[in-house]
Amino acid sequence: MRPALLAAALSLTALPAWAEDVSVFAAASLKNALDEVAAQFIADTGNTVTISYAGSNALAKQIIEGAPADLFISANVEWVDEVEKAGLVQTRDDILGNRLVLIAHGDAQPVTMGSDTDLAGLLDGGKLAMALVESVPAGKYGKAALENLGLWDGVQADVAQSDNVRAALALVATGEAPFGIVYATDAAAEDDVTIVGEFPADSYPAIIYPAALLAGAADDADRAFYDALSGDAADAIFEKHGFSVKD
């Protein structure tokens, strides 16, 4: 082989394989932490990760209706169950946990959350920001907690419902609602809100985030990112953002 052709051949063999793209549908509450996990994966592998964030209910419905996604990470088990019933899950694993908190705009006095909490009095005519209470996991958890504490009937008319938990967080951060119910990790991601109370763990179902590798996932990168979600590096990032990591 002539030197010029040999050099060209060596150059071609040195080229890296084509990068693969991983398409992820993820609960809105994961944004800060999952963006960081994805950035580390991209740096380590050279693959790309495209993440669509929304309420778990909306994402599950899109997947069932045929939206192209390789992974789905929900803020509750039920919406992954629905996707699995549609025959669209290859494998799944519970990866994270979270806590439910009451937040206020700016600085506010702490509140002990219990059956004798005067939440309606705290609102004083203002709104209680929550994600959609019948479909979005954060809203469902929040409604369950309020019902179990006997507080729901007193505040139901004052609830301002949002499409996802980050939208509810934004209502409080901007002062449009004086109080809201979100995950602890959401509150930690926003400087303009204060956690004023934490709901008793036994007042709502355990908050579990399952990750699912979907039926359309065909690339090695898809499986690699799914596995990376439970790796040591991702665990450290999730814990830094306030999530609990499942064994």
Rank of each mutant, 00 (worst) to 15 (best):
V77H: 09
T194V: 08
A60Q: 00
L59D: 02
S135M: 12
D70S: 09
Y141T: 08
T48S: 14
S203K: 03
A184I: 13
L123K: 00
R99M: 10
A9E: 14
P137S: 13
F243R: 00
G197A: 09
F72P: 02
A14R: 11
L100H: 01
L71E: 05
A14V: 11
I207G: 10
D70M: 11
I64T: 04
P210Q: 00
Q161I: 09
E239F: 07
V37P: 07
Q62R: 13
F179Q: 06
G142T: 10
A104R: 05
G139L: 06
D116V: 14
D219K: 15
E239L: 06
A236N: 07
A157Q: 12
S29D: 12
R99Y: 11
A234C: 05
A27Q: 07
V77W: 09
E239S: 10
G242C: 01
Q161H: 09
N57F: 08
D163E: 14
V22Q: 01
I103D: 03
T50E: 11
V111Q: 12
K240I: 11
A14T: 13
V182W: 07
L96D: 00
A69F: 01
V49H: 02
A69P: 03
T48F: 11
L146K: 04
A187I: 11
Y204I: 01
T45D: 03
G66Y: 07
Q161A: 07
D116M: 13
E82R: 10
K140D: 14
R166E: 15
P110D: 03
I195V: 12
Q90P: 04
L169K: 02
D81E: 06
Q156T: 12
N164F: 05
T50H: 13
E84G: 09
D163G: 15
R166H: 06
D186Y: 04
